[in-house]
Design a protein around this nucleic acid. Sequence first.
DNA 1: CTCCATTGTCAAAGGTAAAG
DNA 2: CTTTACCTTTGACAATGGAG
Length: 213
Amino acid sequence: MKKENTINVFEQKQVRTHWDGEQEKWYLSVIDVIEVLTGTDRPRKYWSDLKAKLRKEGSELSEKIGQLKMPAPDGKLRLTDVADTEQVFRLIQSIPSPKAEPFKLWLAELASERLDEMQDPEITIDRALEQYLKLGYSENWINQRVKSIEIRKELTDEWKKRGMKEGGQFATLTDIITKAWSDKTTKEYKILKGLKKENLRDNIYPVRYKIVG
DNA sequence: CTCCATTGTCAAAGGTAAAG
DNA sequence: CTTTACCTTTGACAATGGAG
């Protein structure tokens, strides 16, 4: 039974998380997520309303959310509504928030943070390039990407300034692109926007930067 | 959305009694 | 008398749902 409670930080706000070693899943305090996303000082009520709304709309999401003991402000363990990363992703879509996208980044980073290679930015970049190759990007394009490492560093530094852990950011971007960016695959997104594949990143990147910065 | 009352849960503290 | 085990109380908070 490997289980542990940890505190992670998104934009200087605490999000209580719980690592379930058996299921290899992260559970996040829904209350904390909502607080971060909406900025409300009454996340409990917001969550309550949202839950009711989801129920009304026939979503099974609210029922699937369980409760775990999380450390409360008084230092005691209390039952708190929690959701795994997948559920949180869906939850985010129900919350209108300018922070939704950066939060997805953060979440994806969290999900892969357990991997040791996250520590070294160079390795993460290498991995990302591998991913690009797998995705069929031309080597030429990848070479251009390598050249734009300064941009990456700039972005990383920006994140760092805002209290995010170094490393993982670029892998996070890869995660988003390869897995679950806006709930669409890269391909679908490309088709959706009518973009050439080579241009995809260049369209995403400035947006990310704008949101974060 | 805010404010408020209610309900249930929790951890710690206090009490009591049986066992060493 | 001291330790251990169990029970009750207490204060705080999470969650809920109604009212404005």
